[in-house]
Write a protein that binds this DNA or RNA. Sequence first.
DNA 1: CTGAAAGCGCTTACAG
DNA 2: CTGAAAGCGCTTACAG
Lengths: 324, 324
Amino acid sequence: MRVTIADVAREAGVSKTTVSRVVNLKGEVDGSTAARVREVIAQLGYVPSSGAVGLARGSSRTVGMLVPSLTWPWMGELLQGVVDTVEAADYGLLLFTCNRGADSVERFTTQVSARAFDGLVVIEPENTLHRLTALHRSGLPIVLIDDRGHHPDFPSVVTTNHEGGASAARHLRAAGRTRPLVVTGPRHFGCVRDRLAGFRSVLPEGPVVDGDFTELGGRLAVEGLLAEGVEFDSVFAHNDVTAAGVLRALRTAGRRVPDDVAVVGFDDIPMAEHTEPPLTTVRQPTRQMGEAAARLLLGHLGGAPAPRRPVTLPTELVVRRSAP
Amino acid sequence: MRVTIADVAREAGVSKTTVSRVVNLKGEVDGSTAARVREVIAQLGYVPSSGAVGLARGSSRTVGMLVPSLTWPWMGELLQGVVDTVEAADYGLLLFTCNRGADSVERFTTQVSARAFDGLVVIEPENTLHRLTALHRSGLPIVLIDDRGHHPDFPSVVTTNHEGGASAARHLRAAGRTRPLVVTGPRHFGCVRDRLAGFRSVLPEGPVVDGDFTELGGRLAVEGLLAEGVEFDSVFAHNDVTAAGVLRALRTAGRRVPDDVAVVGFDDIPMAEHTEPPLTTVRQPTRQMGEAAARLLLGHLGGAPAPRRPVTLPTELVVRRSAP
DNA sequence: CTGAAAGCGCTTACAG
DNA sequence: CTGAAAGCGCTTACAG
């Protein structure tokens, strides 16, 4: 049978109130009384029921995390950052995904109303910002990890997409490249517009092809341009997966990397080290973004005021052989 | 303010008992009464507090998941399998990691005693089997996803490591390779011993080098053997990350893959498609293993008897260019 | 078919 | 310094 606070109280010859005070270090308790209670607690192996504590206190000491997918290449690092921070603060982490669209968001909203968690870290699933805003207005603390370049009403963590694009361009320009091809991600993502604008601010010339963040997209972009006879001496792909497709298409076409064409990606996912040649890329501080988001949320739950501007973490150019 | 069952009862002019019956579809309730209650529920937006329900019922409708790390390459797929299954059953998923050793396991054990979840899916962190066994004995339903070849007292999900190794060997033999190099993982993992034994049952000859599941390990193994002048016409690496190191070392040494040396990995992580050449590998059904583990646990929570033998999901050889 | 009451395991004014 | 009692929001015998 489960050991309850009543068992401890009886065994120690005190009231439940006193046991509670000892457990929570709240209020004055006589030294010897406290010692006796602690002894009984250890002896019985008493651990307060999180459910009962939550009900009595009106909070669950748990934060929720909502992600569109767990299989995206940078998700593991991000999640690890969140989990580490949350666990260090003795909170639990309730994980939700919404890869089945409206249905799962519905289900999720129910969990919110059920008060299953005190606050939420979210990577925005497409077209959910208005729902999240509604939840936030109704009192749920939310922090957004923004990979799309949105600017919601609630706190968010972003990276320097514009500067990241610019740094890629500066690196290519310094290497003497003048005719870059840009393979973008979906244009309706704010981050894509920022990366492109940053790149263009340094290297305004050269073709642009719309990609879709997939390997195939990168491959088709390069194949198409080569077929048309369009020349370029470098490629800036808006994510690493696309860059992998670019590398493959170039190899198939007999173009040497980096001699004929230098290639730069974005993200620095684990794969980037293992392409041939290894990929020069703009690193997103994914893990740190997760940590920052969790810290922001925990701080807010602890009463700290929410920052009015997005928390911005810098990208970093990682130079490997595809663009030395 | 939060809407409670009392609010609904008052508004509908019935008792809390009746509201509870309507919500949980339990016991007889007059049709028109039920309809009225449902109307009020919808109108007030009532959602039962998960904490209170859990306390009253003695269960949390939440399962825990304990993983050693979230950044391992196949963890995303596995987690997605677990989450999808758990969410579909209307359970919550509480995520724990234990990358800080004993401390985090301690913290985790506390959560168990706090009854924060009803059952546990676990990927075994090193040296924790005895603790898990103790938790299981004390009444916590546990399902192990076993990547190590253990055989615990509680239900587990495994893949066919022996047959996977054998299939790699058959594939190489059919391609006329006779002098394979095997680069293993850590020898104390049961899965490593199984993969090796399976491979050896088909191709008993050739050198074996101990690896450690890292890229560097694979690279060093090949470099060492080439330096010693040991000849081999193929490599079976015990995971894909090691195989990536093998490919790199071979390329550096000027050996062509697959012409001079064919390479087969294990796992089929996302990277395997993107190495040069793309990697032939023994696919672990990671996502399905997650799904199976979650189903097993949910079934057990629902009263189904636990299977006495590990649930075994088959590996599958995925042929790409590194070993056609 | 329906409800009053006890109970789940805690916390927290309030009173002493 | 300590405790009795109410309350958190539910569920579930039990009685009618």
